[in-house]
Design a protein around this nucleic acid. Structure first.
Lengths: 226, 226
DNA sequence: AAAACAAAGTTAAATTAAGTTAAAAAGCTC
DNA sequence: GAGCTTTTTAACTTAATTTAACTTTGTTTT
């Protein structure tokens, strides 16, 4: 299971988070200042960093920059008490993968952690070069969907959605899972946006009647194919 | 972390800058006149100089010229209260890497410092001699892109952009990161300029269909190659 | 089973991002 | 400072994504 570096100076919150995440099966190393966190990062390997923005010694954003220099691919989630836009911008420029404003629910945080680990793993884990879908072949890396008619270049969003459907071929891909993975945030508007993309994918795939994207009401979608 | 020489005679601003940059993890040595700054530069080593143009004893521009004689490669950023064009011109002729007009935000300054350090460091870090891109070979140091057709000399901007793409081969190179690294400032016009360079690079690389520069809408570019 | 509600589907418009090409401006070199 | 290259600006085009408005389908309530 994933190993998480938690840098949080509020001791109570830190312990709470550690206990919760450990209960969910993660390994958590909790440090209460930026300097210690950096030292720890140098000597151990982690899958994800959970950094408070306001930290003694080295603040979260600079800590992230330093960590990024050591390991380019590691994902960050920033925690912050203030919902200041400025922080948010700075955070993203330091390479934040996500951002959560205090107070937040443990469950919300867990969702985001899982979404990020899924995203980062999915590309580092061996990604299939191609998916066979009836008379179609989908190449997720190049974002191309090939049919008898010839190749069709997909947009990023189309391709990511089709990729998730393929990974869960013949099983239910949950709406929220997809939204969190592709759109990060599963709000109303992103959900509408996803509807539009489902329509587009159905249109692209309608050449072969053995392939279809079924809706499972209230749950998600099932990509059906032999 | 980088060590910065700050020459600023406005004591309040000097202290403010020193505190801010130290909080961001830099080591800062603050001097309030040109003579002291030069003396200090002779006895210690720095990674970057932040010089006010108006300084007692030796003004910022002449200070820069003297410092350049001691260390040829050191980057400068000039600070000035007046937005006088004349100053700007003189500053650049003295070898300024960047220029910031008071009043400026601390964040703005930080961005520029980071962009410059990235640029100057990236060349001292071990840079690959060549990148293999399908049937192309790109030599970042000599700025040459070689294909079956023969070698093509790239311009500085073309080469730097291709270099960043290569460094992030098969992953997303973020637009803003590239803009800040190559163009220093990620404003609208520089972004348009970068578009132009992407078009140029695509044209140069179109000889090999296995190589392509994919756009990831709202994020950046992905240099795709086997 | 009709009404009420919620979820999903469709289509088009609006918005924002990116692509292309040419011309203008800025930098060099001799 | 003429003649070159490089870079930026401009004008315009195309494309990706989101929003909106409206329709259909499924589920629950009474």
């Amino acid at each position: 299971m994933a190993k998480i570096l938690l840098a949080e100076d509020d001791i109570n919150l830190g312990i709470l988070l550690t206990d919760y995440l450990e209960a969910k099966g993660y390994r958590v190393v909790h440090l209460s200042d930026g300097k210690q966190a950096l030292e720890t990062f140098r000597t151990e390997t982690f899958d994800l960093c959970l950094l408070d923005i306001m930290l003694p010694e080295i603040d979260g954003i600079n800590l992230a920059r330093k960590i990024r220099k050591i390991e380019k691919e590691i994902p960050f989630i920033f925690l912050t008490a203030k919902s200041l836009e400025k922080d948010k911008l700075e955070g993203f420029s330091a390479g934040a993968d996500d951002y959560i404003t205090k107070p937040f629910s443990m469950e919300e945080l867990l969702y985001r952690i899982e979404a990020i680990l899924r995203r980062t793993r999915s590309y580092t884990d061996e990604e299939p070069e191609e998916y066979k879908l009836g008379s179609f072949t989908f190449y997720p890396l190049t974002q191309v969907l090939e049919s008898d008619e010839g190749p069709k270049k997909l947009t990023t969003k189309e391709s990511e959605l089709l990729r998730l459907l393929c990974k869960n071929k013949n099983e239910v891909l949950e709406r929220n899972y997809a939204l969190r993975t592709i759109w990060v945030d599963d709000n109303y508007f992103n959900a509408r946006s996803m509807d539009v993309y489902i329509t587009k994918l159905r249109k692209y795939l309608k050449g072969d009647p053995s392939i279809s994207i079924l809706n499972v009401h209230g749950k998600g979608y099932r990509l059906l194919c032999q």
